[in-house]
């Protein structure tokens, strides 16, 4: 328990120090890398809520990541072209306000997760994996064919969206925004993991019969968890699109679902800070190994195999031991 806390603090400090050093030494590239890691971590934390706490192996979280991205893209696109998003049943104008965009991203991806979850959660195991994958791919092909928003080419946004009092085009300031969002999400998820809901959800993962025998319905617990999970990953999608000032169907692709899952597994399934460790390591590997070979995924695959086979619970399992029940 203690070790886990040190690791948490160390990680958060590292994620702060790297971009600050890069900022002082004028290396904006490293700030962007750190920002990417932070955003991927948020996406992973979202998936981990369903996968780690609820045992719901979703292979379609790219759907929410992409929806968050397109929520940003569509609103910003209409703002920069001065056209309304739609006029019926009510008039919705585009927006460059990051806060509003986040809200829309969260609501849209939560609703999508609610709908997808309501259908997918009737299945379990491999079928659940395949159904969530299928939903993800549905969004992918839909976005490719939606020519209004660039279709396959995606949708560039010329200027990053606005945040009150900050210059979001400055890399370090945008990093700060993402870092604060990450911190808030971590606090929220940590609290939820210890709440009545979190305890019951994790009990359902361990033993559904037990949960029924204390009068609860696993399906409802899973559905709420899946919705929260989708909302968090959707928010990450909006941040990611803003970082790149670009959205494209690749955000919906199943590779992204796989990557998000890799963050979770590398870091440690079911550990609140796990995805942060996983995403940071992933970004680091992508940068260092990517420089060595175009086929760096081979090394990533080998590492992932090692993690799954030899560590019990990813980086966190390796350095902080098996999860001790918190009490």
């Amino acid at each position: 328990m203690k070790k886990e806390m040190y690791l948490n603090i160390g990680l958060m400090a590292l994620m702060l120090v790297v971009p600050l050093v890069a900022w002082v030494s004028d290396e904006p590239f490293w700030i962007t890398l750190a920002t990417r890691a932070v955003i991927f971590a948020i996406a992973g934390i979202g998936l981990n809520f369903a996968l780690g706490f609820g045992g719901l192996v979703s292979f379609g979280h790219a759907a929410f990541f992409g929806l968050g991205g397109y929520a940003m893209g569509i609103l910003a696109y209409h703002a920069q072209t001065y056209t309304p998003v739609f006029e019926w049943p009510f008039l919705l104008e585009g927006s460059k306000s990051m806060l509003l965009i986040w809200l829309v991203a969260i609501v849209v991806s939560a609703l999508a997760a609610l709908a997808i979850g309501a259908l997918s959660l009737r299945t379990t195991g491999v079928y659940f994996i395949m159904i969530t994958l299928a939903f993800g791919q549905m969004f992918y092909y839909f976005s490719i064919s939606w020519s209004t928003y660039g279709g396959e080419d995606g949708l560039p946004i010329y200027v990053r969206n606005e945040f009150p009092g900050l210059n979001t085009m400055d890399p370090i300031q945008y990093f700060a925004i993402c870092y604060v969002v990450l911190t808030l999400i971590l606090i929220l998820v940590h609290r939820m993991s210890q709440s009545s809901f979190g305890m019951m959800l994790q009990a359902a993962r361990q033993n559904e019969k037990r949960v029924q025998a204390v009068g609860q319905t696993p399906y409802s617990l899973y559905l709420v968890a899946f919705t929260i999970s989708g909302a968090i990953t959707g928010l990450a999608g909006a941040l990611f699109a803003d970082l790149n000032r670009f959205v494209s169907p690749t955000m919906f692709s199943w590779h992204v679902s796989g990557e998000i899952m890799i963050f979770v597994i590398l870091g440690g399934v079911g550990r609140v800070f796990g995805p942060l460790a996983g995403a940071a390591l992933y970004i680091l590997l992508e940068h260092t190994l990517g420089g060595l070979s175009e086929y760096w995924h081979i090394y990533l695959g080998a590492l992932l195999l090692g993690v799954v086979l030899f560590t019990r619970g990813g980086i966190y399992g390796l350095f902080a031991g098996r999860e001790v029940a918190h009490d």
Binding site: S196, M199, M200, V214
Partner: peptide
């Protein structure tokens, strides 16, 4: 928790 019935409490530490 099951007896109390307030299972959708997301913020208070149950333990």
């Amino acid at each position: 928790i099951g007896f109390r019935g307030k299972v959708f409490d997301f913020f208070n530490n149950a333990m």
